[in-house]
Design a protein around this nucleic acid. Structure first.
Lengths: 306, 306
DNA sequence: TTGTATGCGTTATCAC
DNA sequence: GTGATAACGCATACAA
C-alpha cells in the first residue's frame, strides 16, 4: 500500500500531464483487452441499432469497449472482420452471422463468442435468437383467423436463418388450416425495399389479388405501402398488411401497421450477459440448445376481417 | 527476401493453426493502433448512423478499425470516452461533441481529432459541419415566401451548436423580412418527440394558431405529426410543417414532409479524409476555418401557400 | 513499503 | 539475406 499522500500526488501529476495508462501495453501482459467485437449486418437496421445500444450500455458498466463491424450480409467481409477481431485479441465476439464459415473459424480459434438473431446448423455454440418461427406462425394464424387465405408473402432468398424460419412458420400455419399455398403468392424480394415495391406493383398489375400481404421485414413492408399508396389501394379495406418488425416512423404512418415485435431488450440482455459469463468464468458450461425468445404480435389497424 | 516456397509454407502453417499476428503487440512497438475512435450522441439517430457507415466503409479500405462511443449528449459520458480512447491509444478521433471540455482535453493531449456536425467556440481545431445556419435560413425564407408569418418553432434548449445555428438562421430570415418573432411561438422541446407532441397539442388547445410549424429535427417533427393527426388538423391545409432532417420512413408518410436534407455523404467524406490526413502526414497544416457544407431544401407536400 | 528484474508478442537495429 | 537482441509500456514476482 502506498500512502494516501503519495497517491494523491501521483493522481495530480497524471492529471496535469493528461496521462492515461496504455491499455495496449496492459493488454499485452494481462492477455485481456476488455474489448468485445460486434459483427452485424448493418447498424442502420433499427433492430440492430436498438440491440447494439443495449449491449453498449451494459458493456460499459463492466468496462468493456465495443468494436463494431458491419458485414452487409457479405460472407467475405464477415470472415475478414472475424480475423481482424482475432488479431485485435478481443475478449469475445457477438455475431449475427451470414455464413457458417466465420462461425466455424471462431470455434476453431476457441474464441469466446455468442451467436445472436440466428441459428447456425450443425454448430454447437451459445446462441440467443428471436423465435422467428413462432412469431411468424402466430402472425399467420392471426391473418387466417381474420378470414384471409390468399396471402402474399414478401420474403428473402430463403438462405438466411430468420428468413427460413419465418417462412416455415407461415407454411405450417397454412398447412395446419389446410390452406393451400400457391407459388404465385410467394415472392423473393431480397429483404429490399425497392424490390418489394416493384413486386407489389406487379402483383396487382398482373391481376393477382391477395387479400393480405405478409412482409418478412420492415423494409419490404415500406415498399409495399408505397406501392399500394401509389395504386390507391386502401389498407386495410382492399388489402391487409402485416410486417415482421415495426417500420421506422411507425407511430405516424396511417394506418398503423400490425407487426411482429422482436424482444430486443431481452435479446440484448441475454446475449451480452452470456458472452461476459463466458469471458469471466474459466469453466463455462455450454448449454447445447439455443435460447429462443418469444416475439409478440402488435395488433394495429392494417389488417381487416373479411 | 525469403523464398516464395518458404513464404508459402509459413502462410499454410498460419492457416492451419488459425494464427493471426497480435495487433496489440504490433501496436505497442509501432505506436500506431490503426484504430479510430468515434464519439457521437446516438447511433440510433439516422443522421449519425448513415454518416457512420460512410466512415466505416472508407476507413476499412485503409485498414482502420472503429471504436464506437455513444454519449447521449451527456458531457460526463463524453469525457469518459475521450479518456478511454486515449488509453486505447487510438490514432485519431471523430467527435460530435456536446461539451467543450472533451475537445479541450483532446487538444491538450495533442490528439489527432476532427470535430463533426458542430463548431466549438474559441477552439481552433479541424472541423466539418453542415451549414445549419444557412439551411435553416433558406427553409424559413421558403415558408415566408409561401406567405407564412405565424411560424411556430420546435427547438432545443439553445445549448447545442446546431440548435443555436438553426435558430439564428430562422431569426435572421424573419428579421430580414421585418416579421416580428413572438415569444409564444418559440418552444423548447429538447429535441424530444414526446415533448414536441405535447407541445403541439398545447399550442392548439391554447388557441395559439400558427400557420406553419418548423421542427428543428425529425423526432420533433414526428411528435408534431402525431399531435396534428390526433387533433384532426390537416397538413398542409390547416397548418404547414417543415422539418430539419428527413423523418424515418419518410417515403410513406402522407403528406410527405418538406425538409432540410443534410449532406451526409459529403460530411462523411470530408471528416474521415481530413482525420486520416492528420494521422498520416506528420506536418499537417490546420486550416483555421471550419468546413461548412451546404444543406438542401427538399420540397415535398407538407407546406402550402397561404 | 520500495525497488528491480523479467516477460508479454511484435518490430527494428544491428552485426554476421 | 539471416539471426540475435533491444525496445515498446506495463504487470508481476521477488528481493531488499
Amino acid at each position: 500500500m502506498v500512502s494516501s499522500r503519495t497517491t494523491e500526488k501521483i493522481v495530480k501529476a497524471m492529471d496535469e500531464l493528461h496521462y492515461q495508462p496504455s491499455q495496449i501495453a496492459r493488454s499485452l501482459v494481462k492477455k485481456r483487452t476488455n474489448t468485445i467485437g460486434v459483427i452485424i449486418p448493418n447498424i442502420k437496421n433499427t433492430f440492430f441499432n436498438s440491440w447494439f445500444r443495449y449491449i453498449e450500455d451494459y458493456a460499459t458498466t463492466l468496462d468493456f469497449n465495443l468494436l463494431l463491424c458491419n458485414t452487409d450480409e457479405d460472407p467475405a467481409k464477415e470472415i475478414r472482420y472475424v480475423k481482424l477481431l482475432q488479431s485485435q485479441r478481443v475478449d469475445g465476439v457477438l455475431i449475427a452471422p451470414c455464413s457458417s464459415a466465420s462461425v466455424e473459424y471462431l470455434q476453431k480459434c476457441k474464441a469466446n463468442f455468442v451467436i445472436v438473431d440466428r441459428v447456425v446448423e450443425n454448430i454447437n455454440a451459445p446462441c440467443v435468437t428471436t423465435d422467428h418461427y413462432r412469431g411468424s406462425f402466430e402472425a399467420t394464424k392471426y391473418l387466417i383467423g381474420l378470414g384471409h387465405k390468399k396471402i402474399a408473402v414478401l420474403k428473402g432468398a430463403g438462405i438466411l436463418y430468420p428468413d427460413k424460419e419465418r417462412y416455415a412458420g407461415f407454411k405450417n400455419a397454412m398447412d395446419e388450416k389446410k390452406i393451400e399455398i400457391e407459388e404465385e403468392f410467394i415472392f423473393n424480394c431480397e429483404f429490399n425495399e425497392k424490390i418489394a415495391y416493384e413486386t407489389v406493383l406487379n402483383i396487382f398489375r398482373k391481376g393477382i389479388e391477395p387479400t393480405a400481404i405478409f412482409a418478412f421485414n420492415s423494409l419490404m413492408a415500406i415498399g409495399a405501402v408505397r406501392a399500394l399508396q401509389q395504386m390507391n389501394i386502401s389498407i386495410p379495406k382492399k388489402v391487409s398488411l402485416l410486417s415482421f418488425d415495426e417500420i421506422p416512423g411507425g407511430e405516424i404512418v396511417k394506418p398503423s401497421i400490425t407487426h411482429v415485435m422482436q424482444p430486443i431488450k431481452s435479446l440484448g440482455k441475454n446475449s451480452i450477459t452470456l458472452l461476459i459469463d463466458m469471458i469471466q468464468s474459466s469453466n463455462f458450461v455450454l448449454r447445447s440448445k439455443p435460447i429462443f425468445i418469444k416475439a409478440t404480435l402488435v395488433i394495429n389497424d392494417s389488417c381487416r376481417k373479411i
